[in-house]
């Protein structure tokens, strides 16, 4: 997958790496079990600190998107489950976003339409 980061963005670099990999997975640019560059390798290529990449990777590992071992390096997990922890996190994030949408006057149908479009976009590999 093609990974973009912007050094001038207000979003921390590790967060950008984290978000980009999740977006790549959803769009099918990254496949389950696909190997990713090692922390040092990616840091060298992006010209950023190793700790930045390690932080992004560690967050993804905690969330179950990546796995790593000494022999095979860092890989995308083979399968993903909507487990209890994920569902809880999803609820929390959606709760806040739904609240913000309601404040700005969006209807339930409009909100549903936005989610449907986004979801379909990932299915089409956008």
């Amino acid at each position: 997958m093609r990974l973009r980061i912007d050094a001038a963005s207000t979003v921390p670099l590790y967060q950008q790496i984290h978000d980009q990999i999740i977006l790549g997975l959803a769009a099918g640019e990254l496949r389950p079990d696909e190997t990713l560059p090692a922390v040092r390798q990616l840091a060298d290529e992006l010209n950023v600190n190793m700790l930045t990449v390690a932080k992004g990777y560690n967050l993804l590992k905690t969330e179950g998107y990546l796995i790593s071992d000494r022999r095979q390096g860092t890989r995308v997990a083979a399968d993903f489950q909507a487990d209890k922890l994920f569902m809880q996190s999803l609820q929390e994030q959606l709760h806040l976003l739904t609240a913000a949408a309601k404040i700005r006057g969006l209807s339930v149908a409009e909100l549903q339409q936005i989610i449907t479009t986004q979801y379909q976009g990932f299915e089409q590999g956008e």
């Binding site: 093609r2 990974l3 973009r4 050094a7 560059p37 390798q41 990616l42 290529e45 992006l46």
Partner: peptide, 12 residues
């Protein structure tokens, strides 16, 4: 542009 782009497969 301050954006950098890399290809993970190409790096490997």
């Amino acid at each position: 542009t301050t954006e950098k782009m890399v290809d993970t497969q190409l790096i490997l």
